[in-house]
Amino acid sequence: MSMRRRTLLKVIVLGDSGVGKTSLMNQYVHMKFTQQYKATIGADFVTKELQIDDRDVTLQIWDTAGQERFQSLGVAFYRGADCCVLVYDVNVMKSFDSLDNWHEEFLKQANPTDPRTFPFILLGNKIDVDGGNTRVVSEKKAKDWCASKENIPYFETSAKEDINVDAAFHCIAKTALANEREQDMKQYGFIKQWRFGYDHYLVLHFSLHSRDL
């Protein structure tokens, strides 16, 4: 019995409170949207398995609390991240203005080997609200911001209407994978594999999976 080797990618989702981080994640992983999310405290995560260029990848997506004071908990959550997703609400100017702060804080706390090339992605969420009439941040403004930060890829999304969510996360996974490869080439000269594949734990795995983990 052997387990297939998978690459584990850690993705952190950051942004102001209520911009839809949890909703985006759940739309992507469970293909569901509900108004009934509990506010995230500390951090939470989901995983999704996918294939990118014949590579089996497990995407480990970390959701965080949006209130500013929770940034102080970052060090533990950001450790080992392969990609950082910044989210703002296109209908709330403040959530766009905070992006600089989130970007900066992440680099400060995660302390990646090369901050200039560390992959970020920006998502402008809630484009469905009121047919776009309440929108206050234009696409151009967002793209200008991305251009000023080493050309961060940008997606406009709606977790509610499932617009662009898949495309955005696919890009996230690809970017994270590319970054991981580069990092490993530099550090070890080989591709890091998921270290854990203990066959004798399989029984337990199955019994846990049967409880709908």
Binding site: I41, G42, A43, L73, A76, G80
Partner: peptide
């Protein structure tokens, strides 16, 4: 390399 605060932060705050 599991940092327990990943799960305990929520416990202590809520």
């Amino acid at each position: 390399e599991f940092d327990v605060s990943l799960v305990t932060t929520e416990w202590f705050l809520c």
